[in-house]
Simulated scan of single mutants.
Amino acid sequence: MTEAKKPLIVLLAAPETSASVLYGLYDVLLSVGAVYSDMVSGSPGDELLDIKIASADGKPFHCIGNIPVEPHMSVNNQATPDAVVICDMYTSIYDVPKGRYPREIAWLRKMHADGAMLTSVCSGSLLLAEAELLDGKEATAHWAYRDMFQRHYPKVAFRNESILCLAAEADRIVTAGGVSAWHDLAVYLIARFCGYKHAIETAKVFLISGHSEGQSPYSVMTRPMETSDAQISDCQVWIADNYALAKPVEQMVARSGLNPRTFSRRFRSVTGFAPIEYVQALRIEEAKQMLETDAQSVDDIGSSVGYEDPASFRRVFKRGVGLSPAAYRKKFQRIAQIAKPIAAG
């Protein structure tokens, strides 16, 4: 009897890839079917997935941290995998990867045309955007790339709150958020190709719990200052210290000397935010930092950042962060409890 062909999953990596993502995915996916039974009964099972590492030319290289990588194959390999995982390809939030991965992008287009599922972790989705495979679709990456997607890939509906974006699953495209979102993607791939039972068992082996609350609680507002528009730049500097004042947008408009409609248009063009959204994001960012480190009541924190109505503060906070102020404080206090003994020395 002929042995059933294992699903082939290819991990696409480059020198800009994090070793934790590449080798974490490799270890977890390779263990499916084998390790759980060994741990609970002392009898290892069969590996259910065929996992290969690929790079542009297939030659050994060093990834981030000078960690050696020996790929199994190059992108010239003609075999069509069941799925490709584009590992993170780190780039600065100012450095759009135009023209940086031509061979990888050509291969991704071909693999997708041939029927492979394409998935990505973190900045790996930039390659899918460069390949124009995300045009007209929802997708995610690390929250820090929100502005890059809005400015340079406007045809992509960027979901900065998502850990695992399945909106384009029917088109065989799934994207995952920050680097640790590879956990969620791994569980998804195991369930898809090996079944729910193996996904649960593997999660138990590696203590993978997923990020059910999404990226929003971890997101930080990125505030690159615009220098080409002096009036808007001046308002950005001013509002950074005056976000708690009453009617801050009206004060920025008056400061700029522009009419409200022109100000709003130019402000959005420069920052990616409507003026009131920008103010709210600044206020919430400050409130988050206070909740992490300050013992003040939630109502007092809301008042100090510009919300006299506690209900309004809670509503805006939860809409932006995905958690109530109290739940956010509780979540990050756990981290503080781990860090405090170390900080105390």
Rank of each mutant, 00 (worst) to 15 (best):
V187N: 00
S228W: 06
V205M: 06
K247Y: 07
A281C: 03
D229Q: 10
L245T: 13
K247L: 07
R223K: 15
C235N: 14
Q231E: 12
I232Y: 01
A181W: 06
Q280N: 12
Y243W: 05
C235M: 11
W182Q: 00
Y218C: 03
E213R: 15
C194F: 10
L189F: 04
S269F: 14
E277Q: 12
G214Y: 01
N242R: 11
Q215W: 01
R268V: 01
G214C: 10
I276Y: 04
M252R: 13
E285C: 05
Y218M: 07
A274P: 01
K197C: 02
G214E: 01
L207A: 14
R223I: 11
N259L: 09
R192E: 09
H211V: 04
A181K: 10
S256E: 10
K204E: 06
L207P: 00
R223E: 06
L207W: 03
G195H: 12
F273Y: 15
D229V: 07
D184L: 02
Q231C: 08
V279Y: 00
A230N: 08
I208S: 09
A281S: 13
V205C: 10
G195N: 13
H183E: 15
M225S: 11
G210Y: 03
R192C: 04
I208Y: 12
V249E: 10
R223P: 02
V205K: 05
A240Q: 15
V237Y: 09
I239T: 06
R266N: 13
E226V: 12
R265Y: 05
R261A: 06
Y278D: 11
T271G: 11
S269W: 06
E213H: 10
T227A: 13
H198Y: 11
V249P: 00
V237Q: 10
D241V: 02
L189G: 05
Q280D: 13
P248C: 08
R261W: 04
E285Y: 09
G210K: 08
A240I: 01
I232F: 09
A181F: 03
A181L: 07
R268P: 01
P224E: 02
F206E: 03
H211Q: 14
A240R: 12
T222N: 06
D234M: 13
E226M: 12
T222I: 11
S233N: 14
R261E: 14
A191R: 15
S264I: 00
G214K: 01
I190S: 08
I239A: 04
A186Q: 00
M252L: 08
G214A: 12
L207Y: 07
P275G: 10
H183G: 02
S269T: 07
V253H: 02
V220L: 15
G210W: 05
A254Q: 14
Y278S: 13
I190G: 06
T222H: 08
E285D: 14
E250Y: 11
F263W: 07
L207M: 12
C235H: 04
I239Q: 09
C235K: 01
L258N: 05
A230G: 08
L189A: 14
